[in-house]
Amino acid sequence: MISILIRRILSLIVTLLIVSLLIFVIMDLLPGDPAAIMLGTSASPETLAALRSQLGLDQPLPVRYLAWLAGVFRGDLGQSYTYGVPVAGLIAERLAVTLPLALMAIVLSVLIAIPLGVQAARKHNGVFDFVAGFFSYVSIAVPAFWVGLLLIIAFSSMLGWMPAGGFPGWNAGLFAGLQALLMPAVALALPQAGVLTRVARTALLEVMNEDFVRTARAKGLSDGVAIWRHAVPNAALPVVTMLGLQFTFLIAGAVLVENVFNLPGLGRLAYQALSQRDIIVMQDVVLFFSGLVIVMNFLVDLAYLAIDPRLRANAQ
């Protein structure tokens, strides 16, 4: 068991190393020099050289890569070229927006999708099933940023109920923060909810035809209790798998929605860093995303154990 764990962790580290090396090389091959971007259209070659040496850009690629890597192992993610502050702080600030946003979106999509999917499966081929199917196809087809624009027009410009975007910061109060994240979370959640509704419906339909559900009905449980107590837990595995996939997708995919709502999240940071060729920031953000995907996969595995007693028995 422990040797499996060690082997798995080792393979993760190797994966991260390869990912980081790839990013470093790709960013280096991209045309564009962060120093030239910072100095604009008027700088002389001499000034440019001075800035390049200050930023360490005059060092060869392997030296820069190894210096960065050594820093990461010491827990130092380096300094942003453009902002001039430690990248770790930048990522932490942005995560305080993106993480709650993704969590809110996940919770919302579960709250929408599970009842909808369960009900659609129960009224299989009925009117409700059709309506739920229509909802999920539309919400999958409509891009999240477009939903975001519609929400802004309706609730900010026309009704004036919600701020049109931006983030006041958590020190402005929990309510102000949640209020700023609500519309973006809805925009992000809808397409996810559409997918999740379909997955939940299909999984439940399969389970509902199993003998044990019929037995539960036969021993006198009502239709609703039989489904929620016996069928739904057994249909949970594919739903949780989907959720795990969606969470990492949400964090990375928030970039468009963050732009529409002008939220200072991780997606915007990555986007800005790319356009400014802030290689160190790009590098750290990608490393962080890769790490996050791995952690999420691990959590999903743990969730399987919690949901499925058979797996628990095997693990022992």
């Binding site: 027009i153 900010s156 701020p163 529409v260 709502f261 002008n262």
Partner: peptide
Amino acid sequence: AQAAALKA
């Protein structure tokens, strides 16, 4: 988003 922020 600029327009929305102004109007709101």
